[in-house]
Design a protein around this nucleic acid. Structure first.
Lengths: 239, 239
DNA sequence: CGAAGCATTGAAGTGCGTCAACAATCGTGG
DNA sequence: CCACGATTGTTGACGCACTTCAATGCTTCG
């Protein structure tokens, strides 16, 4: 059940068989949600965190006028609100973009983990820090990249992150976002997101249809977006 | 020496006298840097983290063309690269905006902290998660707020964060950034940052001169920017 | 099969960028 | 203490990337 999650961890550091047991025992249950549901709302008091076993989840913040910024996309294997363990309340919403299966991890078990398995605590601390690194790269994109370069960067990032967990086949992967949601990731209007997708298509960089993308020219896509995967911390480390 | 840092922690949770001792013992030395120096560069291998005792530090990422996005401003009391403990290399640069005094905390001591003082480890984990929450609010600003609203939001955020450590007097605080650096925070050009500052002045919301801001009309500034301090996690919690 | 959401297109508008010049301030050395 | 070059702040004219508004066709799914 946690295979995808463990692959994600093992991309960054070693996880022993015993540690794998401990991690597996964190999950107290499974929750299934339909697409387009609020999984957690900003400000709710939390007593457990969710490990995404399958599906896509968007983390977003809204302004009063209804403008929405998606601050991160979470994929299978991601611990979507691990930061809720220390924060106790989230500053943003979690919404399912697809049907999702979520492993429920009570905060009490995470607390016990920090007491008894400090190395695993450090690994999960690392995971929240990688999340923050993704936020910073998104800030760079939002502030400095053009719409075209920003969108290209998003497709590069998702390709690398999905590849870690084996969800890319032949440079193609499922991409369940509507153009509205893409726009909300990039800080654009739907209209301009549409035109930007078409420009990427026109240049022969991607193919996108029926909720699936194929990267047709990865070198040029990476060049256009100045994509550098270092921020994803994909190399092994001692921890 | 760590008074400001401890105030920041105690805004979020209790810190006992014994814990205060442990924290104090984390600091192995002090490093002083002049303004406008690279404190840490992206990609460097790290074996210690810096606790900012005094001064301002900017965390920024650059594109090849020289465009720079400041992803966070760090103030006295902030652990500027605590995330470096697990990441081992930063994805961004740290640059001093003023003369700074930095407490040097060897990663080995942080590792020992996670082994021996899990509650303190959870507190520092919380601190990195608050950092990420600030990143998300900045992403919302970058993607969805107008230049004027975004700038107003920045002044509100800094006022609240500086107030926690007693650095605000009469709604005024030191603000050492040049307009170029302000622009790099907001994802604007210098010219437009300048015009936006003038518009805030013209509306009677702030006074800004000789590297010091005064907030003249806080309610209207907060309204203009839809500032809501929840994301800063300022309330006490069990951890 | 109808309604609702989603994708696409065109035309016109605007917030912010670009370019260029100049003024004010600062830091440094003479 | 003044001179002076460099950095920072300010202003104006003009341009463009992206927005806004509005309409139309295309999917999807009760």
């Amino acid at each position: 059940m946690l295979g995808v999650h463990l692959r994600k961890l093992r991309q960054r550091t070693t996880v022993s068989a015993e540690e794998e047991q401990i991690i597996t025992a964190l999950v107290a249950g499974v929750r299934e949600v339909r697409p387009d549901q609020a999984v957690v709302r900003a400000g709710e008091e939390l007593s457990s965190s969710f490990l995404l076993l399958d599906g896509w989840i968007a983390r977003s913040k809204d302004l009063a006028g209804g403008e929405r910024q998606i601050t991160e996309l979470n994929l299978a294997g991601d611990f979507v609100d691990l930061h809720g363990f220390t924060l106790k309340r989230l500053d943003h919403d979690l919404r399912s973009l697809t049907p999702c299966r979520l492993g429920v991890v009570p905060h009490e078990r995470l607390r016990a983990l920090t007491e008894e398995y400090p190395r695993l605590a450090r690994i999960y601390w690392l995971m929240t820090n990688i999340d923050a690194a993704i936020h910073r790269e998104w800030a760079l994109s939002l502030g400095q990249r053009s719409a075209l370069s920003h969108m290209a960067h998003l497709f590069c990032e998702l390709c690398v992150r999905l590849d870690v967990t084996g969800l890319v086949e032949n440079a193609a992967y499922d991409f369940p976002l509507t153009q509205r949601e893409v726009a909300e990731c990039l800080g654009l209007t739907v209209v301009h997101a549409n035109r930007t997708i078409q420009e990427l298509r026109r240049r022969g960089l991607i193919a996108l249809e029926s909720r699936r993308v194929r990267i047709l020219d990865r070198p040029r896509l990476e060049q256009l977006s100045e994509f550098e995967p270092h921020y994803l911390s994909l190399e092994l480390r001692e921890i």
